[in-house]
Design a protein around this nucleic acid. Structure first.
Lengths: 151, 151
DNA sequence: GATAAATCCTACTCTCTCGGTAGGAATATG
DNA sequence: CATATTCCTACCGAGAGAGTAGGATTTATC
């Protein structure tokens, strides 16, 4: 498993905010309750999103969080990358310019690099808006049983 | 990270066997030495491959392992699936018919399902032979800088 | 038949990350 | 001032990942 609860919950929070966000700030307790998740744990996750510039926050009474941009301007890739740190399928993928010492002669590296690219490409192609509108065709592609194959 | 050292080493072993396998059985110590990996750890990994029917083995002096089939008849997907157990990017993907209780109303599930399919599809499309022949075009696709884009 | 070289099998250990919890300080509203 | 909220730091238990250890069993060769 590549994506932990941290990344999954972060995405859930973003989706929740996108849905409720029109009416101003949404409190953490509100999100935790409607998604039925631990408020304390969500707190640590939302802090990452907030520091990463994904949200606007307001302290004090009636405070809370809201999206900093329009849902269509968030890719799933950037949300998960921020919370997970990396989405690389293996740790031998070059990270921040540092690569495995055996890279030059490793015959399996192109496979991992290719897999990494396939994942990144997919996640960059989907936005928060796609999720809240339930764009199954874009997410599931040819595997979508309820989508019209003719289109 | 989705693929642990277990899966990576397993693949390395398979590649090594594919390269040396023409001359009969290859011993574990031989593989461990040429790949510079712990023999004891490899032992536990190769046991999985062997029990999974991927290899033929011969005990005793001059014994060892060899591939059970032709390299082109192994997909990377099956090798990794056997050693890793699952390649699902999140644990909310249905496994063996058991799915998350919130599945029916979960708006992010199609995303995870789509990601899972993209990964599976990629890994099913690559064979052991592609790795030993260094088929960069197939592995890296459009991201292959040394491949001729015109082809 | 003894010996050496191999696979096979079971159990153990150490470390790190995941998934949370706890408690309180700062800040805004009414 | 009371209350509701975000913000910050520290802590903790369980389980998985990454190996280690030791020996039992099997087979080829001398």
């Amino acid at each position: 498993m590549m994506v932990s609860t941290k990344g999954r919950y972060a995405l859930t929070v973003m989706v929740d905010l996108a849905r409720k966000g029109e009416n101003g700030y949404v409190s953490l307790s509100d999100i935790a309750e409607s998604e039925n998740l631990s408020m304390k744990y969500l707190e640590s996750i939302i802090a990452i999103l907030n520091k990463g510039g994904m949200l606007k926050s307001l302290r004090g009474k009636n405070g809370g969080y809201m999206l900093a941009r329009d849902p269509k301007d968030y890719t799933i890739n950037e949300i998960l990358l921020l919370t997970e740190g990396t989405l690389a399928p293996v740790n031998c993928i070059m990270q921040e310019g540092v690569q495995c010492e055996k890279a030059a002669t490793c015959s399996t590296l192109p496979l991992w690099a290719g897999l990494d690219k396939v994942i990144e490409n997919y996640l960059k192609g989907i936005t928060l808006e796609d999720i809240i509108t339930g764009n199954r065709k874009k997410m599931l592609g040819e595997y979508c049983e309820s989508c019209d194959p003719a289109e």
